[in-house]
Amino acid sequence: MTSDSFRIGGDITVRRLGFGAMQLPTEPDEARKASIAVARRAVELGVTLIDTAYLYGWGANEELLVEALYPYPDEVLITTKVGVVPPDPPREAALCGRPEVLRDQVERALRRLRVDRLDLLQLHRIDPEVPLADQVGTLGELQAEGKIGHIGLSEVTVAELDQARQIIDVASVQNRYNVLDREHDAVLEACAAAGIAFLPWRPVLPAAAEPPGEIATVAAELGATAAQVALAWLLDRSPVVLPIPGTASIEHLEENVAAASLRLSDDQRSRLNATRPRV
């Protein structure tokens, strides 16, 4: 049976079903109170991996998690991302991997999250205008300074992962991936071979919105929802997969967390594997 936990970087043990905080509203009103309740409920349900990023409200999402969870329980890992800068009209948010920008964003994240070290810091995207070596090299320097524990990447190819691993130890990769979107199968396989955590973002859609088909059939057989089947498939796919479904609803959060207890039969696994991915 596949383990329900994973050791990121070999030393940070988390439960494999995490929580993506991106969808949590941060406005100072009832919606913010509801967001805080969702974050706290996630921890109550045993979630130990919570994903955020500077991009999510330009720090507001990180600050929301601080309000909800600080001081953080010992077992909870808050992972954040850097490498994107705010919009400068008419330009939308842009990638920026310049060393001085990455260093500044890491320093600000430390202050916002009220920690001395970011246990897992991910590069949100590779900036094509800056040499990859300069980007991951800067994060490596910050790691040597004790400000970063482990380094991760997001939306990378196998070649980019290989190149980065020649410079730093990569602890995680966060790419878009789900039962109907397997574009990054090769990246997942590379992570599995190297023992690197693979955090699929958008782990549920579009499966949860699909018309009746094999996913719905398996869901009926298990007495589950299509979203739960999508998460169960990911957890079954490889022991290095750590899905991070996001929601602003406690009901949906509880539904997602319950998916960790689903077990696919060999037949169900085969049928889901045969479902035509969208590429």
Rank of each mutant, 00 (worst) to 15 (best):
L180R: 03
D104C: 06
E189Q: 12
V14M: 15
N175W: 14
W201T: 07
A93F: 06
P87I: 14
V240Y: 01
E221Q: 09
G149Y: 09
A37T: 02
I244D: 10
A193K: 03
G83C: 06
P128S: 04
A220K: 10
D11V: 10
A37D: 05
R114Y: 07
E63S: 11
Q143M: 06
L132I: 03
D88H: 06
E214G: 03
R276M: 13
W201E: 03
S154Y: 09
V84M: 12
E92A: 14
G246D: 00
A258D: 10
K147N: 14
G149F: 07
Q268G: 04
R32F: 06
D4L: 06
V257N: 01
V170Y: 15
A144F: 03
W201K: 05
C191Q: 02
G213K: 02
V66Y: 01
E75C: 01
G57A: 11
R271C: 02
A190Q: 12
I78R: 00
Q105H: 07
L65W: 07
T52Y: 04
R125D: 03
E75Q: 08
Y72M: 02
A274N: 13
R112Y: 04
S154A: 09
D236N: 14
G9V: 04
Q135Y: 05
V101D: 04
V82G: 08
V85K: 12
E107L: 06
